[in-house]
């Protein structure tokens, strides 16, 4: 109950630092989900709707990357963007942008893998119909995405959920810097390490509320646009 009271006190009136942390969290999660979906959905649709040599190997590779540990993803991005790394000149370490890059590395395989499995199993009649009409592979993939958009929303939400709840990679590349790169999860970790368990739990409750609001909004948008 103490945690719920603290969560309420943080939100009403809103705490300035909390708002800043929520802002960074949302920015990072939305950008990384958007980029991952822009790459992963068409790729997943193509893999799911086309037969080609090496498809089985590619699927295995994607499924392996779906289980990529966040700290490993964080380390890969860190080593690429560190001062002596190949992209060191970009000076992006410990920024929100680099946190999004790490998230894209983590989430894109999830979006690609889940959407290709969905397309492969549920979109067979769409693929058969489209190919029968002589549509190109790209057009067939686009049709599959459009026809299965309600189901693909769960893929997008899964990606967003993974992004907003991730802590390992963002703390390595972002550094959990106050007023700069601190997000909800790294803030929860910090408060837990300080022994402020009920405050950390209050942040967790707020994080869950945000995730619920995003899910509800996305479901509403899809329902409104569903034209059967």
């Amino acid at each position: 109950m103490e945690s719920f009271r603290q969560a309420f006190e943080l939100l009403f009136p809103p705490d300035r630092e909390l708002l800043q942390i929520i802002g960074v969290t949302m920015r990072m999660s939305f950008v990384s989900t958007l980029v991952s979906c822009l790459i992963g959905l068409p790729l997943g649709a193509l893999i799911g709707s086309k037969n080609f040599r090496g498809k089985s190997f590619l699927k295995k590779l994607i499924h392996t990357l779906m289980g990529l540990p966040p700290v490993v993803a964080g380390l890969i991005v860190y080593s690429l963007f560190t001062h002596y790394g190949p992209f060191g000149r970009l000076d992006m370490l410990f920024t929100v942008e680099i946190m999004s890059v790490a998230q894209v590395l983590l989430i894109t395989p999830v979006v690609t893998g889940l959407s290709s499995s969905f397309i492969e199993t549920s979109s067979k009649p769409v693929i058969e119909t489209a190919r029968g009409l002589g549509f190109s592979g790209f057009r067939t993939a686009r049709l599959c995405i459009n026809e299965g958009r309600a189901s693909l929303l769960s893929v997008v939400l899964n990606a967003f959920g993974r992004s907003i709840a991730e802590v390992g990679a963002v703390s390595i590349v972002g550094g959990n810097i106050q007023w700069k790169t601190r997000v909800m999860t790294t803030a929860i970790m910090l408060e837990t390490n300080k022994g402020k368990f009920s405050f950390a739990l209050a942040l967790g409750i707020i994080l869950l509320m945000i995730a619920f609001a995003v899910n509800a909004l996305a479901s509403f948008i899809v329902r409104e646009n569903a034209d059967g």
Binding site: P125, E128, T129, G132, L133, G134, L143, N146, D227, G228
Partner: peptide, 15 residues
Amino acid sequence: GSVLYLPQQSYAFRG
């Protein structure tokens, strides 16, 4: 070159 195929399983697109 130009072939059209109607599958056994009919499908209705959205709309």
